[in-house]
Every structure is written in structure tokens, then in C-alpha cells.
Design a protein around this nucleic acid. Structure first.
Lengths: 182, 182
DNA sequence: ACAGTTACGTCAGCCATATTGACATATTTC
DNA sequence: GAAATATGTCAATATGGCTGACGTAACTGT
């Protein structure tokens, strides 16, 4: 139990003066590196399970968003994942062929393929989400009672300002959509 | 685009205390998704610059850690990145060949190749770190004065408990190395 | 009605980054 | 001197991105 506590790394004020700030400020090393390590461990939980199914992270992302946002259009998914339709096509086809995701024609627009998870797909999606939730819950439990709200606000602030509203709407909409259960 | 007019979705919930203890059946959807979006945007800053140099994220990670932890052994780098030496070898060779990273024999153990950045390498590493710092500083500035400490604690708590001490030591050691005073 | 646009799919190929396994070389250690 | 260690390398393979081109069905507007 080395007592190498993260000793006050003299955090600098964001803007001491209204100067053009020509890269004189010291980088925020700790957050940069912690983000790397935290995210690496965060995704690794699911990776192990996915490997047993012959899936990768790409499948996870698709399955996650389809499960969480049922009835999503393909275009929406492309927009959220920010990948090309060719890249999506490959993994989506596997998920559909193997019975994890279903496609059905849009009621208004029959060109659309609205995506939903099958029971089998939901089971896997929830298992993966459960693993990630375990880690998150464990982390938040170690911190104070306002940790969840604090983490949420930090993460939102890290998102491109241009995309923030969209993300928050997406999350809020999904929260309402999935409410009938529980 | 979904034209759902969801105006002002609880950006700052009036009373998050409405949930005393989480019924852990429901996944922590918001943090799961926000981590995805936040990390995606976080790494995208550097990607654009790297592309101009013909480098990718793998090069960035190597350059970052060598810059931040000068004199690192190859084995240390493998341990930090958790990739195979073959994977590292490819990108490291490019960085060395193009004059961003230097290797020198270890003083005690001449089998070791201690890695350091060249001035050219440092310049690029600092540019990339600067971009990431901009985003982080902007985010932290939006939140309260304790945001930095809060974010740090959250991220540390998200790391595998088995690796936490190592990561914190790594960061603390680097801070001392790059800042001889203290 | 027909032209144009949209939503989606697909073929073909390329690139970056990761993997496993085997083997080579120098150096240190016992 | 044998064994272990630190590093490098060759070869094959997988994943998940990308661009470009093309196709088809369905919606939209004049």
C-alpha cells in the first residue's frame, strides 16, 4: 500500500490573464492520462464477454444504441457512431443474421429500416451494460453522494459544444422510451 | 434529424437527491453513453493534427508516454499500453526513423533501450497535449473550482483497483521528473 | 407523371492497428 | 557456461475503420 497519494499537482487556473495563451500553460497531464487508463479499463469489461460471442467493440456499440434507442433509423445510428454506412453495414449484418437485431420498415417512410433488438439481443446488451454499470457504481460509491451528478456534468462538458444538446436530448429521449419496464 | 422538440432537458436537475439509493437493476445509462461521447470527442482533437503527420492514435500514445516519462524502457511502455511488442514495434520504428523518438542504451543494463523524445518529438507531443488540455480546461472552467479534483477522483475510481496504485505512481513520478523542483 | 432526392445496401479495395507464434541477438545473472 | 531477460523481427491473421462506385426502392415537388 504505497502512500503515493496524488499530491496537489498545483493545478493552474484556466485563464490567469486574458492573453493569447501561446502554449505556455502546463498541460493537464493527470486528466489526460487518467482518461486513457479509465476508458481502457472501462471498455475492457465488455470485451471479454464479446469475445465469447465472436463479437468486437463495433458490435457492442451498435447493440448498445439499438437496445437503448429502439426504433432507431440506420441514419440515426450512423450519425451517433460517426462511421460510414459501409463500416456499420458489416457489423449490423452480422447482428441481424445472428438474431440479435431486427429491422422493420418504417410506418411513414418505407425506405427506412427501423432497428430494434430481439430478446436475445436485449439479453446480451443488458449483460454488457450491467458489467459497465458495476464498474461505474463501484466508482461512484467510493466518492461522495454527488459523484454521479459531478461525473455527468464533467463528461457533458468534455463533449463538443456543437454536439452537447444532441447527446443530452438523445439520452433524455431514451430514458422516456425505456420507462414502461422496470 | 429527429425533430423532437425536447426543450431544456434537465441539464441541471433541480433535485438529484430524489434518488436516495440506486436500485442497481437499472444500468447507469447516462454515464455509459457520456463516456462514449466524451472520449470520442476527446481523442478526435489530436486525430486531426496527427493525420497531417501521417500518424495515428497508436503513434500518439507512444509519443505521449515517452514525452511524459522520459527514459522509459520498452518493457515499461508495453506494460502501460497493454499491447504486444510487435504492435508497439511498428509504430515505434516509424517514430524513431522519422526522428521523433530516440533510443539509447541503458547505463546499468545495456540490453535496455531507454526511450526519449527528440526536440521535434517534444514539440509534437506538446502540441497534442495542448489541444487536449484546451478541451479539459474549457470543461473544468465551466464547472466549479473543485471540478479538477472531482474529475481526477472519478477517473481514478474507474480504473481497475489492481492498476490504480501503479497509475497514480506513474503520474506522480512523471510530475516530479518533469518538474525538478519540489 | 416524371425527375430528383433520400434511405439504404453492397461490391471492391485499401489502411491502421491489433493479435499469435516462432525465432534471433545481445546481455545479464547465477 | 547455461539460463533468463530485453528487445527486435518475420509471417500470418483479424478487426474495424476508410473511399469510391453503383444499385434500388420510395418519397417529394413541380
Amino acid at each position: 500500500m504505497a502512500d503515493v497519494t496524488v499530491t496537489a499537482i498545483a493545478t493552474r487556473p484556466a485563464s490567469p490573464n486574458a492573453e493569447p495563451e501561446h502554449h505556455s500553460a502546463e498541460p493537464t497531464w493527470d486528466i489526460i492520462e487518467l482518461l486513457f487508463f479509465a476508458y481502457r479499463d472501462f471498455v475492457s469489461d465488455a470485451d471479454e464477454v464479446l469475445a465469447k460471442f465472436g463479437f468486437g467493440r463495433a458490435h457492442h456499440r451498435v447493440l448498445h444504441f439499438v437496445n437503448r434507442h429502439p426504433g432507431m433509423k440506420v441514419a440515426d445510428l450512423l450519425d451517433v457512431l460517426k462511421i460510414t454506412k459501409q463500416s456499420l453495414g458489416r457489423v449490423l449484418k452480422q447482428l441481424v443474421d445472428q438474431g440479435y437485431v431486427q429491422q422493420k420498415e418504417g410506418a411513414n417512410d418505407r425506405r427506412q429500416r427501423l432497428l430494434t433488438v430481439t430478446p436475445k439481443g436485449e439479453q446480451l446488451a443488458m449483460k454488457l451494460a450491467g458489467l459497465q454499470t458495476e464498474r461505474i457504481a463501484r466508482a461512484l460509491a467510493e466518492l461522495g453522494p454527488h459523484a454521479h451528478e459531478g461525473a455527468r456534468r464533467f463528461l457533458i462538458a468534455m463533449i463538443d459544444s456543437s454536439g452537447r444538446d444532441g447527446v443530452q436530448k438523445l439520452i433524455a429521449r431514451a430514458d422516456r422510451a425505456r420507462r414502461p419496464r422496470s
